[in-house]
Structure formats: C-alpha cells, structure tokens
Amino acid sequence: MSTNILIHSTRFLVLLLAQIFLFNNIDFLGFVNPYVYILFILLYPVNSNQLLFLLLSFFLGISIDFFSDSGGIHAAACLVTAFIRPVILKFSFGVSYDYNNVKVSNTPFGSRLTYISFLVVIHHLVLFNLEVFNFNHTILILKSTLFSSIFTILLCMVFMILFSKRST
C-alpha cells in the first residue's frame, strides 16, 4: 500500500514537471501540444477512494494552471475527466468485467485504446472550450481538440507500453 502511494505521488510530480518543462513547449505545427499529464488520471487505481481521486485531479490541474497562466481551465478539465472516469471504465471494459480488478496497463489493446481515447477527448474538449471561451470559434476549438487529442493519445499509449513492465 505504501509503495502504491509512493508510485502515485512520484508519478504526479514527474508528470507535472514533464508537462510544464517539456510538453508545454513542443508547439508542433505552431499550436499542437500534447497534455500527457492526464496519464495520472488514466492510471490511478480503479478501486480507490473517489473523493481523494477528485481532489488529486483538481490539484494536478490547478498546478498546471499556475505555470501556464490559464486561470482554472486545466483544473476544470481534469475534474470533469476524473468524475466521468467510472462511466468510461464500465463502457470500455464492459459491465460484466469485474472492474475492481482492472489494471489499465494489463488490459487488451482495443479496450484500452477506447478507454484512453474517450477520456482524452473529453478532457481536451473541456480544456479548449474553456480556453477559447467563445462559441464563434467552434472550428478552432474542434481543430485544436482533434490534433492535440491524436498527439496525446499516441504519447499516452507509448508511455504506457514503455513503463508497463517496470510498474508490474
């Protein structure tokens, strides 16, 4: 249990720093940035206290906001993603799947991809809607969501595969 706490707090810090110093500065094609810090929300144990999970997600988001001068957009996006996660879990791994024993890094590729894609797209949609905050720019919101989502999903899958052996 204590090793679990250690793993998750290290992951929290490492992802936060990586996001601020590395992934916020990629600017692929001038505007596409991956938001890889969402891995913390994706990989958080499924059977844990939901209350703590919501609080941690909020703090992760607001920490990113502090560094990127963006008000509360990351906090809101993280919060929505964390809140909606149980639904997506049930949807992508099936109701019959005993989801108390799901370990995201050991699931079949197809359902894992669905799980990641849904959460990433929801997160990005909330994020860019709040960032632009103007319905006249719907095309811009959708474009940013699409490109950033593809980038984030790709990187999340790669990181999961890279780090899965060590964490099991």
């Binding site: 209350l51 919501l54 609080l55 909020f58 988001g61 607001i62 906001d65 001068d69 963006s70 008000g71 509360g72 957009i73 906090a75 809101a76 919060l79 929505v80 809140f83 709040l130 905050f133």
Partner: peptide
C-alpha cells in the same frame, strides 16, 4: 457535491482570468 464544489472554483477562476 465535491465535484460541483471544485468545478465551481475552477470555473470562477477561468471566468476571472477571461
């Protein structure tokens, strides 16, 4: 309720920043 509370905080911060 916690979700609503935190969402209200983050949305008010967002609106303030705009």
């Amino acid at each position: 309720l916690l979700f609503l509370f935190l969402l209200a905080i983050s949305l008010s911060l967002t609106i303030q920043s705009h």
